[in-house]
Simulated scan of single mutants.
Amino acid sequence: MGVWNQVAQYLYLKKKDPDAPKNFAVKFMHGINRISILLFLLAMIILAFKLLRH
């Protein structure tokens, strides 16, 4: 599976793979990855606004 497909699944832009493993560790890892992607996107938006204001 490609990186962009995985990111799309994390952000609920694409359906999840029905053959993907479903245990607690994988769910927890995907949750942490989702939080880190969202925080990264938020930081990029804040940096863009700061750069555009100056």
Rank of each mutant, 00 (worst) to 15 (best):
S36L: 11
A20D: 13
N33P: 00
L38V: 04
K16A: 12
G2V: 03
K14H: 06
I46S: 07
V3L: 15
I46C: 06
L39A: 11
I45E: 12
K22I: 00
L52S: 13
A48E: 14
K22F: 01
N5D: 15
A20V: 03
I45H: 10
L39S: 09
A20E: 15
L47P: 02
A20Y: 05
M29K: 11
L11F: 01
D17Y: 01
L42A: 15
F40N: 05
L11H: 01
R34D: 00
L11W: 00
Y12I: 01
F28T: 15
A48C: 10
N33Y: 00
A25H: 06
K14G: 02
R34I: 01
D19A: 13
P21L: 05
D19F: 06
M1V: 07
A8G: 07
P21W: 03
I35P: 02
H30Y: 06
G2N: 12
L51Y: 07
M44E: 14
F49R: 08
K15H: 09
M29N: 11
A20K: 14
I35H: 06
G31H: 05
K22R: 08
F49P: 02
A43M: 10
Y10D: 12
L13F: 15
F24V: 13
R34P: 00
F49Q: 09
N5E: 15
A43I: 02
D17L: 04
I32M: 14
G31W: 08
H30L: 09
W4Q: 14
L11C: 05
K14F: 01
P21V: 07
K22C: 03
A25P: 00
G31C: 05
V7E: 00
A25Q: 12
L42M: 11
L47V: 04
I35V: 13
N33C: 04
A20C: 07
K15A: 13
A43W: 01
Q9T: 10
M29I: 06
I35W: 07
S36H: 03
A43H: 02
I32E: 12
L52F: 07
R53K: 08
L41F: 09
I45M: 11
Q6V: 04
V7Y: 00
V3N: 12
G31P: 00
K15W: 03
I37N: 01
Q6W: 06
D17N: 15
F40C: 09
L13T: 05
M1P: 08
I35Q: 12
P18I: 02
K50V: 04
M44D: 11
I37S: 00
L47N: 14
S36P: 01
L38K: 12
L41A: 11
V26Q: 12
S36Y: 02
Q6T: 08
Q6L: 06
F28D: 14
N33Q: 10
I32Q: 12
V26N: 10
L51M: 13
N23L: 03
P18Y: 04
G2I: 02
F24W: 14
I35D: 11
K50T: 04
G31M: 07
R34L: 05
L13Y: 14
F40R: 06
L11V: 03
V3C: 11
K22A: 03
F49K: 11
A48H: 13
K50D: 08
Q9V: 09
K22G: 02
K16E: 15
K27H: 08
